[in-house]
């Protein structure tokens, strides 16, 4: 009887402690997820009202008129990302292949270090660099210049993620390829890369998500455009720059559309992240 009492007091204490800890854990999970949810809910509230079919299909309406959309910015963002990937992906993968498969000693250290530095360079500096070496000599903002700036940002990200993947391929796999009488470059292209492309693609897609929100490096490279533009040598609009332009404008309608643009951009990045996880992280 006495013992029962002691047990139940002990039990009670244990339970209280348990609930307290669970509460604490839930709270910390909430703290972690709170900023994300609050940003998303806020942008959803602000952006949803002026989101319409027109937003995706129409050019901006002239000042004073209602309606219009950001179709040219959405297409422009795809253009910029596509050409940036053409630059950043092969370059990044080539750099990773050199570092993991060919280089050794000091060269590898130097390359890794310069990739780290490149990753740390503020994106606006990348824009300035491209401005002085491409925009100024070509005497104009352009799709190409914008993609170059974004591509430069992609290189170290793709290189690093690819490197991490290639490092997980055990060396005896490479040796097994060589032992079959396959030249090293073919072992890399047809065996090592073939077995890792899913993971490499994940890194590439995440780097796309990363550059799709970049604004600063585009301001003085791709600049902006209120009309359709399909030429590599002409200024091209992009979602982030259009959001920026509209957000600082004095017109209420434009500000509302900036929120819609922000919502579309966020959703795009969410979708990419979720898709990557669903596609490649099943196991």
């Amino acid at each position: 009887m006495n013992l029962d009492n002691v047990m139940s007091v002990h039990d009670f204490k244990r339970k209280v402690k348990n609930y307290f800890m669970i509460g604490l854990i839930c709270l910390s999970a909430l703290v972690a997820i709170f900023p994300l949810i609050s940003v998303f809910v806020f942008v959803l509230q602000k952006g949803l009202p002026s989101l319409s079919w027109d937003f995706f299909t129409q050019l901006p309406a002239p000042v004073g008129e209602t309606g219009g959309g950001m179709a040219q910015s959405i297409l422009g963002s795809f253009y910029l990302i596509a050409v940036a990937s053409l630059i950043g992906v092969p370059w990044g993968i080539a750099s990773a292949i050199y570092i993991t498969e060919y280089g050794y000693g000091k060269t590898v250290f130097l390359l890794r270090f310069s990739n780290d530095l490149l990753m740390g360079v503020p994106s606006i500096v990348m824009g300035l660099f491209v401005y002085s070496f491409v925009v100024a000599p070509m005497k104009g903002f352009s799709w190409l210049a914008g993609s170059l700036a974004l591509g430069l940002i992609m290189i170290p990200i793709v290189s690093r993620s690819t490197e991490e993947i290639l490092k997980t391929v055990p060396s005896h796999i490479r040796e097994a390829g060589l032992a079959l009488g396959i030249p090293r470059y073919k072992v890399i292209l047809h065996i090592i890369l073939k077995g890792s492309w899913g993971a490499i693609l994940t890194g590439i897609i995440l780097s796309v998500a990363r550059i799709s929100g970049e604004t600063a490096p585009l301001l003085f490279t791709a600049f902006n455009n209120q009309y359709w533009s399909h030429s590599l040598t002409q200024p091209v609009s992009s979602l982030p720059v259009q959001i920026y332009t509209y957000a600082i404008s004095p017109f209420e309608e434009w500000q509302a559309q900036a929120w819609s643009g922000a919502l579309v951009l966020i959703l795009f990045i969410f979708v990419i992240n979720i898709a990557v996880r669903l596609l490649f992280h099943k196991k």
Binding site: P170, A179, I191, K194, G195, S196
Partner: peptide
Amino acid sequence: PVKIRRQVGMVFQKPNPFPGL
């Protein structure tokens, strides 16, 4: 060496089929 290796097969300690193939 590439030609030589086509005439000398090798099997390793750990089974190592090529992943993804």
